[in-house]
Each structure stands twice: as C-alpha cells, then as structure tokens.
Amino acid sequence: MSDVKEFDTRPAGSPSAESPLAWSFHRRGTPPREAGAGVTLREKAFLGHMVLRGGAIVLDEAVREVLGITLPARPNTLALDDSGERSIQWLSPDEWLVIVPGGEEFALEGRLREVLGQAHYSIVNVSGGQTVLTLRGEKARETLMKSTPYDVHPQAFPVGKGVTTVFAKATVILRRPTEDTWELVLRRSFADYCYRWLLDAAAEYGVTVER
C-alpha cells in the first residue's frame, strides 16, 4: 500500500542491542553443559521478522520475485530458501511471517513495496518484538509434548510445518524447518516465561543452552 510510512528501526551505528532473552541469560545464566543432555536450546537473536498481510496470489508473485521463495499457500506450512536462512510461514489465509538474516528486513520491505505497488497489502516490521529459540535433541519432542497441546508426532508434524499454538500459558509459533530442529518464535515479553518453562520441563532429560 502506498502512503505508508516506512521506517528503518535499525541504527546506522552499532549501539548495544539486547535480545528478548538477554535478561533471562543475565539473571540465571545458562545451565551447566551436561553430557548426554536430552535437549539443547539456542537463541537465534536479532533476525529480521516481518508480517506480510494480503491476498495470496498478489503476495506470491512479489515474494517469488524478491525473495525467490514460493509463498506457502497451504495452511500451516513453512517454506525456506536454499540456504535455510530465509523463510516464509503461513499464519492465516491472509498473513505470513517472513524471517530473514538481521539487517535485510528494511531493504526487503522496500523491494516488496516496489513490486506490490498499489495492491492492498501490509508489511510490518516486528523484529524487535520476537525472537527464535531452537530446540534440538533426543528429548526435544517430549519436552514439546509437555508444553503444547498441538500434536508434535512426526506423522502429524512433518518437516516444513509451522503452526501458531498454545505453549504452556503463552502463545508461540512452532515450526519444524529440518528433521532434527524445532523452532519456537517467541514474543519478546513472553520469552523469559517460555525459557523458564522449557528449562523446568526438560530438567529431567538434562538441558544445554548454547550461547
């Protein structure tokens, strides 16, 4: 949509930045590295997050042209580029989440707006408002079973799926980009709660947090 005020929220210099989990790591440190830990957590901080809203057909053309990814039109699906660093996830029939390496988002928004022209759509940068936490390990799935009512059995949750669902008493976006990786997209204000929940739920399996 034209007549929209684009705004690059990333500073030109390099002032210190704090990810949504900075406080959690500061307050309780990270659990000591444990041999044979069943679950490994890692924050993928400072990525570019954008919410795209609009009609699937219009947006599909634009993201294919600009990002080289086909818009995932089927519900609850996730598409990645070849590097695996850029992704688009279906959130609703007119809403997608785009995650790209940090710093790419503003330029990407500009290019998308150029291609989309006068169509009816919206692009909103939400990079400061969420973060990605990955779960790996033998007990990752069981830890998720303790946390979300969504069925995470491989039959019900194959690679390339992503859903918005309940996590403990919060909301997360849960996705499975590769065979052995789960990603949680956490809202900033709920990040500490979700992190503490995971440490508690996975305690019996042993947890390692990679920094």
Binding site: P75, N76, S92, P93, P149, Y150, V163, T165, V166
Partner: peptide, 12 residues
C-alpha cells in the same frame, strides 16, 4: 475451516 485441521479448544 481456515487452518483446515482440528485444534484444541484452548486455541479458541
């Protein structure tokens, strides 16, 4: 009908 699958009541 939009997600095209069954979900738990907690989500609604």
């Amino acid at each position: 009908p939009y997600c095209e699958e069954h979900r738990e009541e907690e989500e609604f």
